[in-house]
Amino acid sequence: MIDYIPSGDSAFLVKFGDEISEEINRDLRAYFIAFNEKKIKGVIECIPSYSDLMVLYDPLIIQYKALLHQLKQIAENIKDISIPEARTIEIPVLYGQPFGEDIQAVQSHTKMSEQEIIKAHSENKYLVYMLGFTPGFCYLGGMNPQIATPRKEVPSQKILAGSVGIASQQTGIYPIDSPGGWQVIGRTPLRLFDPDRKPEFLIQAGDYLKFYPISEEDYHKMNEND
C-alpha cells in the first residue's frame, strides 16, 4: 500500500510504510528507479529516506492532480520494469591507530578485543537507507549490536573526513571534517564527497556498504583525503 501525501504545494511524499525495514526500503528503491526512468516533466528532484520518497516539483509546470496521476501510474507499472541489483560498495578502512583513536573506548565498553571489534564491524553488509545530516553522510542499517557503544561524553571539535565511527546502535562515515561525538574506530582513504569529481558522491541511497580492513601502507597508497 503506497500513500501519496502532499507536503506543501511543491512536494509529494510517496510513503511505503511507517517503520525502518529492509523490505520497505526495497520497495522504495524499486519505485525510485522506476520514477527516475519516467522523467516526469516539472519534477525538480527526489529525496529518498527510510520509508518514503519526497518528490519536489514546480507547480508552474505540473500541478498536483496531474502529478499524483503519474505517481500512481509508476506504482502500477513497477512490475514491468527490471530493477537492477543493489550495488555493494567496498570501503577500505584502516582500523585502530593512528586515526581510530576511540577504538579503546569501544574495547572497554564492549569487553571485546580490537580484532573482534574489527571483525564484527567488517563482516556485515550495511544498507544505506538515506543520506543527510551533512552532504554525503549515510544512515546505515545492519550493525552488529555487540559493538554498540554510546557517543563520547565530550564531542570532538574536529573529526576528520573519512573517519569511521560508532554511536550507540549506528555506524557511519564522516564525509567532511566536522565536530561530532562518534567513537572513531578507523578511517577510510576514500573520499565520499568531492564537488570537483563526477559523480560528486561515492554512495547513494539503496547501496550496500562492505567495510574491509587495510594496512597503514595500503591506506597511504589509496589515500584521497589530504
Binding site: G8, Y50, D52
Partner: peptide, 10 residues
C-alpha cells in the same frame, strides 16, 4: 517521526 525529506517552508 521516522526521518523523512523536508521541503523549504515546512
Amino acid at each position: 517521526i521516522i526521518s523523512s525529506g523536508i521541503s523549504t517552508g515546512a
